[in-house]
Structures are given as C-alpha cells and as structure tokens.
Design a protein around this nucleic acid. Sequence first.
DNA 1: AGAATGTAAATTGTCAACAATTTTCACTGA
DNA 2: TCAGTGAAAATTGTTGACAATTTACATTCT
Lengths: 223, 223
Amino acid sequence: MTLSAVEILRSQSLPMVLEQEIERVILSGEFAPGDRINEKELALRFGISRGPIREALRSMDSSGLVEQVPNRGFFVRQLSAEQACDVYDVRAALFGLAGKLLAERITEEGIEKLKSFIADMDAAVASDDFESYVKINFEFHEFIVAGGRNASLAQQYLGLVKQLRLYRARSLMHRESMQASHIEHHAMAEAIIARDPARALATHTRHVEAAKERLMATVTDLK
Amino acid sequence: MTLSAVEILRSQSLPMVLEQEIERVILSGEFAPGDRINEKELALRFGISRGPIREALRSMDSSGLVEQVPNRGFFVRQLSAEQACDVYDVRAALFGLAGKLLAERITEEGIEKLKSFIADMDAAVASDDFESYVKINFEFHEFIVAGGRNASLAQQYLGLVKQLRLYRARSLMHRESMQASHIEHHAMAEAIIARDPARALATHTRHVEAAKERLMATVTDLK
DNA sequence: AGAATGTAAATTGTCAACAATTTTCACTGA
DNA sequence: TCAGTGAAAATTGTTGACAATTTACATTCT
C-alpha cells in the first residue's frame, strides 16, 4: 500500500525533509566529520530561511549525527576509534536482540526470503562480486532488524548504523572480510531457521563483534 | 571537579535548558501522554519566544519523548502496552551489555561501592522502606550503566528509561515487587564481583525482563 | 619576526510579525 | 435532533530583522 503524493507531503514537514537531505549530504561525505555546518549556507542552498534548518539540525543532534556547541554552531559529529568501538558494542547487543526476536517470530515466507538472501550472497562470494555482496548484505541486515517487529529496536539500530558511517566516513566493510563475514551469515541463518532464539542471539551478536574486530584490525590508532 | 557557574552557562544554550525543563514538566505528569503541547503557552511560561521552544521540542522528538504531527503540533508521546514491551526488550539488551562491560572493567573501589549499594538495599527491604529502596535502586542502576564506560550505551539506556516513564506516566515499580527485584540484584552483584562477563550479561538482561513481566502482570490490556 | 590588541566582518541566537493551516463554534436546513 | 456549512479564532510554519557572540585580520608593540 503506497501513499499518495499528497499524503506524503502531509506527513512530511519541511524540517523533516530537510533532515533527510542534510543527512544525505553528511553521509555522502560532502560535509566531513568535524566540519562546521554553516546555517546560512544551507538555508541558501535549499532556498529557505534558517529556522527550519536549525530545527532539523537540533533533531540530528539528538540522533548523534551532528553536535551543537553553544554560540559556535553545529558540527558534523566526529567518532574516535574508541567511540566507534562503543557504538559497535551497543549495535552488537541490539542486533543480537533482533536475531533473537526474529527466531521467535519469523514466518514460513520469512524463512524462504532468508534463504534467498543467503543464496544470493553465496553467489556473490563465489563470483567475488563485492559490490553485489555489500548491497545484499545491507538488505539482509535490514530484513533481520525489521523482522524483529520492534519499532524501538529498529529505530535505535538504524541510528547507530548511521553514526558508524561517520567513523572514517568511509566503507565499513572491506573486500577481504567478505568471506569471513558470510561464514557468520550461515551460522545466523541456521539459528533463525531452527527457530532457536538463544543461538540466534549469540550468532547475531558475535557477527557484529567480529565486524568490529575486522574493522579495528585495519586501523592503527586503536588504543 | 565541579564547573563554575559561567562554565555551565557557556556549555548550556537556552534550548538545551528548555529541553530539560520541558522534560521535567512532562515526566512530572503535568503534561500527560497524548496531550498536545501548546508552543505559545510554553513560550509565555518561560518568558521567551517560540523559536527556542520549537528547537527543544524537535530535539525531544528525536529522543522519543514527544511526537510531531505536521500542522498540528507536538504531542506528549503515548506508549501502548506493546510499545512499552518493545522498549523493555531493548532496555534489557542494553542493560545486559552494561553488566557485561562492568564485569570486565570494574575497579576494586567500584566493587566496594557495589557492595554498599546492595547492603543499603538489603536494609531497605528488611525494614520494608519502599521509598528508600526505589531511590537506591535507581542510583544502583545508574552506577551499573555508568560503570560500563560506554557513552553511547549510557545515552541510549537513559533515553529508554525516560520513555518508559511515559507508559502510564506512573511508577514503574510496585511495593510487592521489591523483594523479587532485590533477589535478582544479588545475582547480578555476584556476577560482577566474580568479574564474570557472561554471567553478568545474563543476570542483568534477565533482571530487566523480569521487571517487564512484573509490570505487565499488573495491567490487563496486554494483548 | 612574533605575540598581543583592537576593530571589522561573519555567524549564531532570539524575537516579533505574517502566512498557512487547523480547530472551534454558531448557524442552517433537513 | 443532528449532520452539514462556513466564518472566526486559535495554532502552527516560516520568514526577515536585530542583538549577542565569535572569528578573522590588520595593526601595534616588544
């Protein structure tokens, strides 16, 4: 059921749209972590006044994408290696919960969908198609989180993933880690298909922890 | 090390202070869940214009305390029983992580502090002093979360606790559950003192899950 | 040359007014 | 009686202007 154009405009206020746009600008890397955000410049760019811009930025402050310093303005949030580790740990806990809930609640059709994700990634790994793998991998994780049917969890988790993109503002996955990561996917899927919540919790948590370790192994300044 | 008055004023902007004030008004129950928030009224109350009020509300929207409906304004967020359960599940996962981290990182002095919390609550339970128990219990939980030394975790966790106060806007703990709750505290403390992360994870997660079940047992409309 | 100082420019913080939308409520007609 | 209608009032959304603060930079002094 798709909403009509007018419905969308009704449900989306200007600052809400702005939020998505500014988010896009930041996550695209145009504004780098640590950069100061000039309100006037943004207002000019979108052809509106500073009021809605500030509202959108205040909202993004709460969700951890920007930081406000009184009288100095908004800055794109910068994540240190330690902070990124912290976020990864929280993400691991939440993803574990998502796996557990999914194991409890998944439907037969869900299991079929899950299997097709795994098969598609199998193919991508076999043909060393990194681009496809990253794309499917992303959808796979979204599927798991959405399948937990817990709006609070989904919101928090997605917020953390956005925050992590601020760390080094670059890809969170490297080609070399593709196979190792996918082996974990198999263990996760097995637990879900077996509808084993405890095992799903463990495998899903471990998957994010491993991703953290793989990423941190590539940086030198980890204290 | 306490900040000087001028330091505090430097670090706190008007909308930031407003946020705390409005939060206080909401959590105190003066504005009930579902109530519409009149911007003009708040502006008049604090003697300022609507701009900073709106900024503060936008921020609170992101953290889940209010909801904005385009052209209709801000409403105090209302949590259904199902939504409260969802939040509890997320909180349980985060608190489990806090326990795990604390078990890994707690100092000797931390362990002494932990023991004194337990002793104080033992005394409160023994003398059936519910008021004291609630107060110490709150500080005990804050201590655990802070001890995890993970800012992201602490922020998310505290946000969820605030959200839960919107459910029935009333006490999340009843006198009858004091003893049951405290038995769990002992198990948690044992795991921490033993510096056993896995057991800490399990006992802390279970503690919040049990709190959820105790609360939900008192309401009838749980689907 | 380099640090310190003072002034101008730029930027953020706040406000009051206006436009757009929703809500209220008296009125009408079946 | 009550659903429908339509203006009036109230409320939200947005803007441009002004005040407060910070930043940039040229000047001075050591």
